[in-house]
Simulated scan of single mutants.
Amino acid sequence: MSSTPPDLTPPDLGVSSDVERATTASVTGGGPLLDFEGHSTPYIDYQSIDVLLSLQHPRSQAPSEPTFYILGQVKELLFKLVYEEMVRIRGLLEQDRVPDAVWALRRSRRVLELLVGCWDVLGTLAPTEFNAFRDHLGKASGFQSYMYRMVEYVLGNKVAELARPHRNVPHVNDAVQEALHSPSVYDAALALLARRGADIPREHLQRDFSLPYEPSAHVERAWAEVYRAGDPTDPAFLLAEALMDVAEAACRWRAVHLLTVERVIGFKPGTGGTHGVAWLRRISEHRFFPELWAARGLL
């Protein structure tokens, strides 16, 4: 990867109004436009389709590698979407716009479900199919995904040392470090509870956000009170459940990842230096938004 991202600014497409679209439909008789000036189409230009579809470069002749390669790129796009949505949700919570945050969390859960579905496809690779191109990965591993690391950070799993793989890629490292040092969406939710009178310890509100989050019995009781006092129309109750939807979906992603790797490569070491399944099994035990899980035991 180069030290600076390439300039892929798409061409200006202009804008169209409902009136213009209705006029066009009357001209075409309701069918699609088939003729365009220039050397492209508006759809290619809007989605940068020609650029997107030029980025697939499998390293072997194995017919199964494109499945692995393209699904990996799909996951990266979805990680980017989840991260950007979580940053926006954090901002909504900071503005006390709880219904808007809940709505966006519901959509983010669906995106995470798509990510789980990626493993369902990759699980169709037989061990022999994966082995046909695995050596061509070298030391490349999904563990090195900086977009996934940023997703983990914005959800609150702050492990600073896991940013190290990106320290020599300036524009990537800057983004990863910003995610590491910024409040998580869970930090924003706790600050919102505190503004609404919940007993959230000061050290949970004013701290170094790059450090791992330490669960608190106070926070656990605060979430339990949300459930006891709330009802299905209460914004805090809806926020708690929407956060749990996202936390559960993220756990499902990890769990299906573990199962897929175990099915495809068994207990072989990973390409990126880990013990493979043993590493994934350990990290799959982590829970985002820990007191929301623990609060169930108080109800």
Rank of each mutant, 00 (worst) to 15 (best):
G14N: 11
G14E: 10
G14K: 07
V15N: 12
S26T: 12
T28A: 03
G29A: 06
G29T: 03
P32Q: 05
P32T: 12
L33P: 01
L34H: 07
Y43F: 10
D50L: 09
L52A: 10
L52D: 06
L53V: 14
S54T: 07
Q56K: 02
P58Y: 03
P58I: 07
A62E: 09
Y69L: 14
G72W: 01
K75H: 10
K75P: 00
V87F: 01
R88G: 08
I89K: 04
R90L: 10
L92A: 05
D96A: 08
D96Q: 10
A104L: 14
R106G: 12
D120W: 01
D120A: 10
L137P: 14
G138I: 11
G138K: 07
A140C: 05
S145A: 06
Y148E: 12
M150G: 08
V154Y: 01
E161P: 00
A163W: 02
R164C: 04
H166P: 03
P170R: 01
V172L: 07
Q177E: 14
A179P: 08
A179H: 09
V185C: 04
A188E: 13
L190A: 00
L192T: 02
L192P: 03
G197Y: 01
D199M: 06
R202F: 02
Q206P: 00
D208K: 05
L211I: 00
P212D: 13
P212C: 09
E214A: 11
W223V: 15
E225H: 12
A229Q: 15
T233L: 12
D234H: 11
E241G: 10
E241Y: 07
E241C: 08
A242T: 08
D245P: 00
A250G: 07
R254D: 01
L259T: 09
E262Y: 12
V264S: 03
V264E: 07
G276D: 02
A278C: 03
H286K: 14
